[in-house]
Design a binder for these strands. Structure first.
Length: 159
DNA sequence: AAATTGCCCAACCGCATAATC
DNA sequence: CGATTATGCGGTTGGGCAATT
């Protein structure tokens, strides 16, 4: 049964609508919000998009060596507790950590476990180009609007 | 130049837990 | 209280792009 809700990648316009709505009314109920915001999306989809992409202060760009260390160590202690691991990394989301783990870190683990002291010396890190953490919201909203939106009390959203 | 393979990650799904009725 | 509804989490994957053949 098709519910008529959109799925898949978020368009620029949808991003705008979600941010515009949340910036005005905050987060009160994910499952009801999309119809008030004029979005043909499930609440789940909206929440995910916000949490992983549109929410302020999300760090983008490559992970630092320090972040690698924290993830590798935390994972060795906690296992696949992505949310718990991400909470140790300001600005990183659980999804990002999970993706990064599977795509970049997992292959290092056997070596890391056997030889934690030396795992650093092979220059296997992906940190080379010093790339600027592009704020995607600038593309979405334009920097002026973004600033006034980002400047408002984020605490009132309860993240 | 075209086809194939590999890599990456945004977003999905199902389920567990928490909140609300 | 039990039932229903909302949120949060982790595993998984579709599809785009890059690299390779």
């Amino acid at each position: 049964m098709n519910t008529g809700l959109r799925k898949g990648k978020w368009s620029h316009e949808e991003d705008q609508m979600l941010v515009a709505y949340i910036s005005r009314y905050g987060i009160w109920n994910w499952s009801q919000m999309p119809r008030f915001a004029g979005l043909s999306r499930s609440g789940k989809s909206c929440r995910l998009r916000w949490m992983n992409y549109l929410k302020p202060n999300i760090k983008r760009g490559n992970f630092s060596k320090e972040e690698d260390e924290i993830i590798l160590h935390s994972h060795s202690v906690l296992g696949n507790k992505w949310s718990a691991i991400a909470s140790k990394l300001p600005g990183r989301t659980d999804n990002d950590v999970k993706n990064y783990w599977y795509t970049h870190l997992k292959k290092r683990v056997s070596h890391y476990n056997k030889n934690p002291a030396t795992h650093e010396q092979n220059g296997e890190s992906d940190m080379d180009e010093m790339e600027q953490p592009v704020n995607h919201l600038n593309k979405v909203l334009g920097s002026v609007r973004f600033m006034e939106w980002n400047g408002m009390e984020l605490g009132s959203f309860s993240l």
